[in-house]
Design a binder for these strands. Sequence first.
DNA 1: CAAGCTTTTGTGGATTTCCACAAAAGCTAT
DNA 2: ATAGCTTTTGTGGAAATCCACAAAAGCTTG
Lengths: 407, 407
Amino acid sequence: MNPFATHFESLEEFADRVSELLQCPITIEDANHRLIAYSGHEHYTDPARTATIIHRRVPERVINSLWREGVIPKLLQSEEPVRVAEISEVGLGNRIAISIWKNKEVLGFIWAIEMNEPWTEQQFHLLKQAAKAAKNLLLQLQIRKHKKEERIQEFFWKLLTGHVSSPHDIVEQCHQLNVHVYPFFSVGIFQFQQQIQTQVERQIDYLLKTTQQLAIPLYTIDHQRLIVLVAPSSNVYGESHIERFFRSFMTQMKERFRVDIMMGAFGNVYECYTKIAKSYEEAQTVLKMKRAFPHQLANIQSYQHLGMYQFFDLLFEQKRHGDFHNVALEKLKQYDAQHHTNLVETIETYLDCDSNVNETAKTLNIHPNTLAYRLKRISEIGNIDLSNMSEKVKLYIDMKLDKYRTT
Amino acid sequence: MNPFATHFESLEEFADRVSELLQCPITIEDANHRLIAYSGHEHYTDPARTATIIHRRVPERVINSLWREGVIPKLLQSEEPVRVAEISEVGLGNRIAISIWKNKEVLGFIWAIEMNEPWTEQQFHLLKQAAKAAKNLLLQLQIRKHKKEERIQEFFWKLLTGHVSSPHDIVEQCHQLNVHVYPFFSVGIFQFQQQIQTQVERQIDYLLKTTQQLAIPLYTIDHQRLIVLVAPSSNVYGESHIERFFRSFMTQMKERFRVDIMMGAFGNVYECYTKIAKSYEEAQTVLKMKRAFPHQLANIQSYQHLGMYQFFDLLFEQKRHGDFHNVALEKLKQYDAQHHTNLVETIETYLDCDSNVNETAKTLNIHPNTLAYRLKRISEIGNIDLSNMSEKVKLYIDMKLDKYRTT
DNA sequence: CAAGCTTTTGTGGATTTCCACAAAAGCTAT
DNA sequence: ATAGCTTTTGTGGAAATCCACAAAAGCTTG
């Protein structure tokens, strides 16, 4: 006979029942480690569980430890209970965990704290029965959520495309949809190697829901791209917070799920939600420029650090009208062609290296004096004053615009 | 009785007549030292005269000497003959010169070579009579010229404003108007201190017509501006030729006529005459930028050397839409305001000085180590990588755009 | 006013840059 | 092939830069 074959009013009631039967504290989480229910009996509770209950989610460091220890991969692979040894650094006592399945998808987890004695076969069997019973309860939750999700998605796309009304209305709608409004935000994009499949969607959802580095009130998936609204807790070090989150998201996708993300990018941080479309545009610009200048912008993620490449679409448009043709550059190109020299490459590398002689010489594999000689020739042939910032800027931009054209 | 009170078929006939009476070679020039007529009798002729006749104009170095010796100023002041001592460097022998007047305007000059003996009173008297007689002959030339001038002016304005047809038609029209077509050209503008008066117009005409550094097929005057079409002889060192001409024109206007020119500027050198409007626009851009950045661009005249300022109108337009706001710069400004520091000024000067520490420190009157410290703070506070060209460019442009806004 | 912070200036030494000069290597055209 | 050019590499010394460390001066705050 199944002890869970009755009707439960709520998941809490269910958790309490499991706790009674197993004689230990029980915590039920969804697939993203958000707290769904927990037993209320007076038992010993480790610090990790306390923190989980207080914040209504498992602390990120605990999740990270569980990944590192291989616990979560195991849970995601089998329906069997997993024994977890104490991880004292994160306040986690001895645990038994089991995943809740529906078809081939994990809906959530049940965690039990292993009290003094080791579990009996009987207890393990009970836990497995509990996991089966939890499935139906969780499914009901899921359905309710999915409906809301769809409305939120639509709302987010409206924000991204600028089809929005007043800031006040936006906040109003957020409240209706139960989307938290943060004081600062930025729009980010992750470009994946391939079209994002359903399984990867779940993995993305998992990572985004479990991260606590910053809030992600909204996100959506579009072909090969994941678009997120990120909200750093403060804007003082906002940029670097986002940077760090982006890097860790990408490494985690790779390490945990073997999913490659080509690149990530995000726009400026704004306060008013009407600027979401703008931040989105900026993020798209970053991606575009990273594609055109993969080497230069390999380590750049933010629009803020795009530097002069921010201007490029605009300048390029103008250049196509035939403006800005650079006589100096043309002369250098001509000279290169006629004399089989590398003056253009030289000056470009030199400027890439921030006018650093040694670095440039190393990059080009030439003697520093050779570089000096070439620079002298460049300034003669192109009639350029290489100690004039404005001229250098012009030349640099024109060279990069040239490259941009060929992509 | 006046020996010139007869009708002369041509100016040549007149010159021969004068030559006969004075027993010496005679040359008649217009007010711009262009050859109008010369006597053909076999007399001794100095190299300066030979060159004048061959090139149909007085060589520029001869003109310059005559100015330097004070000969021409004297001629422009009085109707009396002026004795000119030999200037052997330019091949000029002993001469007697007199100016030809109409009301208060000089129409031209008569030059006589003083042969072996010094002139008698009688000869001077004859020369004065000749100058009076020449007046009417020159006037007829003038009238014919004026009419043509007007049609040329109209044509030039059409070219400048882009109201032109095909390149072929332009060349056609040039031929009709007797305007020489050169393979390369650029449009230049001189900005005068004040509205250009008739007298100054003549002085401009004089300098433009006498210069031989480069050809000036067309020019026009508009309020405080003189607009010239300049044609360097070759485009190899075209830019520098034009530069030199601009400088010398401005110094000569000042030294010879006490007329101040605020600044000069010229556009790119093109080959096709349909690009005149473009070159003109570029020259206007240079003037505009020189007004906005008088210090930085004090020594810049050409569009080519405007460097990054070429972009500024375009970028500024975009910036007004609220794009490109620079968080780093805002943070620095904020820090400056709160802590009474000069970080923005420091970084701007540093970039102005092409990242040269010593020069910057001297300019700012601070210790080099102070500068180093400030730069460190700047990169911390603004989250800027000062060894990244692209970021430097962005910051530099944003700072200059800020300045541009306030002008 | 004392403590703690930021900012300025100083010192010294390793490293880099700049410059002049020269040798060697490579290319081109007669 | 040779002469004349450009280009590369080398040497050495003066000047500038970079860096670490420290003292002093200036500001802010309790």
